[in-house]
Design a protein around this nucleic acid. Structure first.
Length: 547
RNA sequence: UGGGCUAUAGCCAAGUGGUUAAGGCAUCGGACUUUGACUCCGAGACCGCUAGUUCAACUCUAGCUAGCCCAGCCA
């Protein structure tokens, strides 16, 4: 069963307590992506968690683009990210940018200088690093640590004016160079970057660092619960310090949860970029990619992704969930929603000897036997039929064989029983045609029950079937050994194409339409598909206990 | 003795002193079946380890072990 809402977890408990104690009145969360990459399913977890949590408590969720580093960001991603969130089914209460708050952030920085809590530092990047100390040794104070408030004010203004080159000065928080938490050793608050910003243009040449900007942004927006991943745990003391020292009226709190990984799936932005740039994949929306655009193109539904995220829970552990879990969510979602039709992926000709050459029948059959609301469709039947190679073996391999073999009788689903009376082979000895006879008394729907077939197989009428391409997608990675290069871990068979046939009624299917191809799997119409040249992506296979 | 975080079945994950330790995925049986699907029934845990507190410990305490994170003018 698909989980429809978030089960018990530590963040939910915290919110319940905060509400009960009166510490928090309005639940406000936010999803703060940096606009520098396509979103992937790991982001989907953050999105879904933030939105569902707020929704559950009558709160709201903002989308906030964390655009404090113009050298890495690109406005193109802003629209892409908005689209992904909308596709997932969420609507942000507000769409903000970190850059909306540059003026306010600057004022707070000035305030902190006046309070003697921030200073302009002349150290180079290398020197800042050297002065910082190591994990086991304390750092040393910057030579400029005790500059006067007046001088700091003057220099900070000078930084802003544009007269100082990149990297020559920084504004630093005056905290504790001996702190065992390295984040507290006078972290940089502002750096000089003479770079054009996608929102603020050339107005600024100093940009705030994440550690300073983020808590202020949360505070300004009235965020109550600021969720982030585990690697920010060590930043929380800094977060709280900035909120307090910058005298923010609203006090947000940060809570961290573990990242979600999926087996056989590479999730880091960097690796995904490498795959695209090396042309290992066909783009960010390649149906093998774990990006939201990739999953969408492949045929994953927002409902399945939401069920997956809700079903895997939330904790302070970096988890690696089996990809089978995601696959199951897709099957579960499409089980009742998708029409079930016939497709033959590896065609083998079947000829019914006792069926008249010029006869054609049409059958009205249900689109989904478990869901009458999906209606019916008409399929044709005639002397020449395509079946799947896998459904035929000249001699049955074992007594459990439930398909067709010489001398055995199976049901062509929704049609007739056919009995194999012989085969035609080519020079190489491969079976190229199966010869059968059919029994008119066994017509589906007739109530015939005098004998049981050896199995049920799908088929399409060769006279009317449409040729189609099937993209049989497998994991990009076969090896989870993170020590090896991703290029050494690639699955050489991640993309297999099959040429086969589908029912004639699929001639005009729109892209992204989902089907269950009976006994084969769930498929979605690819973006490249068009009438006369149909392309289907296999989203997931059906489960099978057949070995 | 840098600091921090984590530890419940193969994978996720509830559980916050007293329950047969939820649930999902996976796996293995069985039933049903015009999908070897679905559905249904059944099966799995010495709760990281060791001491302790307690009538009672997955839950509290101490010690230990293992894994992950931190030394960007990235986020």
């Amino acid at each position: 069963m698909l989980p429809m809402e978030m089960s018990s977890n530590f963040v939910k408990s915290i919110i319940e307590e905060d509400l009960a104690s009166g510490k928090v009145k309005d639940v406000v969360t936010r999803f703060p992506p940096e606009p520098n990459a396509y979103l992937h399913i790991g982001h989907a977890r953050a999105i879904i968690t933030n939105f569902e949590l707020a929704k559950m408590f009558g709160g709201k969720t903002n989308l906030r683009f964390d655009d404090t580093n113009p050298v890495k960001e690109d406005a193109m991603f802003v629209e892409a990210i908005k689209g992904d969130i909308e596709w997932l089914g969420y609507e942000p209460a507000n769409v903000f940018f970190g850059s909306d708050y540059f003026e306010e952030t600057y004022r707070r920085a000035v305030m902190m200088i006046k309070k003697g809590l921030a200073y302009v530092c002349d150290l180079s990047a290398d020197d800042v690093s050297a002065y910082r100390g190591t994990l086991t040794e304390p750092g040393r104070p910057s030579p400029n640590r005790d500059r006067s408030v007046e001088e700091n004010l003057r220099l900070f203004e000078e930084m802003r004016s544009g007269r100082i080159p990149d990297g020559a000065k920084t504004l630093r928080a005056k905290i504790d160079m001996a702190s065992p938490n390295i984040n507290m050793r006078d972290p940089v608050m502002y750096r000089i970057l003479h770079v054009h910003h996608h929102n603020t243009g050339d107005k600024w040449c100093i940009y705030p660092m994440y550690d300073f900007a983020h808590p202020l942004q949360d505070a300004i927006e009235g965020v109550s619960h600021s969720l982030c991943s585990l690697e920010y745990v060590d930043h929380r003391p800094l977060y709280d310090w900035f909120v307090e020292k910058a005298e923010m009226e609203h006090v947000p709190h940060q809570y961290e949860f573990g990242r979600l990984n999926i087996t056989n799936t590479i999730m880091s932005k960097r690796y995904l970029k490498q795959l695209v740039e090396a042309k290992v994949v066909r783009g960010y929306d390649d149906p093998r990619m774990p990006t939201l655009v990739g999953l969408r193109r492949r045929g994953y539904t927002p409902e399945a992704i939401r069920a997956f995220v809700l079903g895997t829970g939330l904790s302070r552990i970096n988890s690696t969930v089996s990809s089978e879990m995601l696959e199951n969510c897709l099957r579960d979602d499409l089980k009742m929603k998708a029409a079930r039709t016939h497709a033959v992926l590896s065609p083998l000709k079947l000829t019914i000897e006792n069926y008249p050459e010029d006869m054609t029948e049409t059958f009205e059959i249900p689109n989904n036997g478990d869901n009458p609301e999906l209606g019916t469709r008409t399929v044709s039947f005639s002397k020449h039929i395509w079946i799947d190679k896998e459904d035929f073996a000249e001699t049955a391999p074992d007594k459990g064989w439930k398909r067709l073999s010489v001398g055995l009788e199976v049901r062509l689903m929704q049609a007739y029983f056919v009995k194999c009376v012989g085969v035609v082979k080519n020079e190489a000895g491969d079976v190229v045609e199966v010869r059968c006879t059919y029994d008119p008394a066994t017509r589906s729907g007739s109530g015939f029950n005098l004998r049981k077939p050896n199995g049920n197989i799908h088929w399409v009428d060769a006279a009317t079937a449409l040729p189609a391409t099937f993209n049989l997608l497998e994991p990009l990675m076969v090896d989870s050994d993170a020590d090896r290069s991703i290029f050494d871990r690639l699955n050489p068979h991640s993309w297999n194409e099959a040429q086969g046939y589908v029912e004639a009624n699929l001639s005009n299917v729109p892209i992204e339409t989902k089907f269950q191809f009976v006994r084969v799997g769930y498929f979605s119409v690819d973006y490249d598909s068009k009438p006369g040249s149909l392309v289907f992506n296999r989203i997931v296979e059906l489960k099978s206990s057949f070995k």
